[in-house]
Write a protein that binds this DNA or RNA. Sequence first.
DNA 1: GAGAATTCTTGATCCAAATCAATCTTATAA
DNA 2: TTATAAGATTGATTTGGATCAAGAATTCTC
Lengths: 252, 252
Amino acid sequence: MSDRNIISFENIKIACKSCSLVTLCLPMGLEPDDMDRLDRIIKRSRPLHRGDHLFRESDKFQCLYIVKTGSVKTYAPSEDGGEQVLGFHLPGELIGLDAIENATHNCSAKVLETSAICEIPFNHLEELSTSMPSLQHQMYRLLSREISQDENMLTLLGKNNAEERLAAFLMSLSGRFKRRGFSPYDFYLSMSRHEIGNYLGLAVETVSRLFTRFQEEGLLEVERKHIQLIDLERLAQVARRTHSDRGRIQST
Amino acid sequence: MSDRNIISFENIKIACKSCSLVTLCLPMGLEPDDMDRLDRIIKRSRPLHRGDHLFRESDKFQCLYIVKTGSVKTYAPSEDGGEQVLGFHLPGELIGLDAIENATHNCSAKVLETSAICEIPFNHLEELSTSMPSLQHQMYRLLSREISQDENMLTLLGKNNAEERLAAFLMSLSGRFKRRGFSPYDFYLSMSRHEIGNYLGLAVETVSRLFTRFQEEGLLEVERKHIQLIDLERLAQVARRTHSDRGRIQST
DNA sequence: GAGAATTCTTGATCCAAATCAATCTTATAA
DNA sequence: TTATAAGATTGATTTGGATCAAGAATTCTC
């Protein structure tokens, strides 16, 4: 836990300004000085492992979390042991914004694979944003974006059928991977079919059948967690298809 | 548009501190001085009428809106003329928070009945919140609350059946009316069956049938837009029923 | 106040996706 | 290495709610 060892976890604790995520993470667009001030309140924990929790529903709200590497799912547990998956979070994405209001977490956050996480004590962040208009602005933007995303998801669940939901999900992942410098065509899913189905309001079996169908239709290749998107254009068409133009198959 | 006439619309333009909504609206919890400063940037327009728009999707984002009296629906229009209703907004509720991120409205807001609306230029609000930590805090809270509410809605759409969705919707309205000093048992719906169905991801016919069924089961009395909740307790049970305890009918 | 246009209700039918069931595959444990 | 469990796939069956259809009630409009 010191600098005794060069190959220590300290090495992953690089400052925001040298972090590859800086262009899409919380410090995005801050001046170097401001970034340093923010940097000082951010804690970087040692890697968490599959199944570890960042927080659980009804925990006291202390920190926001940012995925640095790996992935995290957030979910609302129900009394009967079930859950609703609320989101999957990739590097650079902020987690815990829904807890500010009543100072308690409304959902749980569980690590899907070995992940490095940045931790930001919210009271410090809020204090800092008081004296840093650009940070305040960034916070408003990120909170607002979260709302937009949830609204998109509401539309997806309210209006789109199974096929469209899965296609939209894959397109979303693809785009997010791309922005992070990963391949938008070839990636591994860190979540199970069950979790995908839960997130999209579908049964596992439906998700499984759709993957098979998409493969048969030449949209993608799938082998367990490994996804290769073959025809991004057509997949996008399936994803944005609404009610009125179901069934139409467009050629590219 | 002056003080020529005592019975003019100017009369509805009362300051926040004399507004009955002050305990659940944006200025909630602000010090009197701070409230005055906020008050000065708020514009109060003359009443809008059924069908009027506060803003439309892709409009430039300028202002947040607060319902003072009446009600408003927000919805995401789709290319094919359809829409997804995103929310119904009652007095004291803030509208437009999803537009901060990209400075453009992602949804449209339409007045459901004659309504008075307060208008808050966001650039002024943001500026003010820079020098007013309590206002900044309140903004974080309201943004965060919006996220929580959307997440609840995601769970409702992802996990609950038609019956549970409508019950939850009615319970939500009831609670919100109560907090505003209206009867939680007896109210008028300002939205159509079609809009309720759209919001809840259901067909109009399903909504209509459920109202009939709820009435038959003695949960409520319904006559067109007029709703009287007879058995709030049992309605709440239906609303919070999850997957695992479908069908069980609990007596109170 | 008649006629048109919505909105709402109710019934009949259909279908997308859930559920049930079985097998297969891949991880984890002993 | 073999058990054992968990995850994924595929098929058969069921079903909740959509869709189709028609009529009734209400509200707009001229």
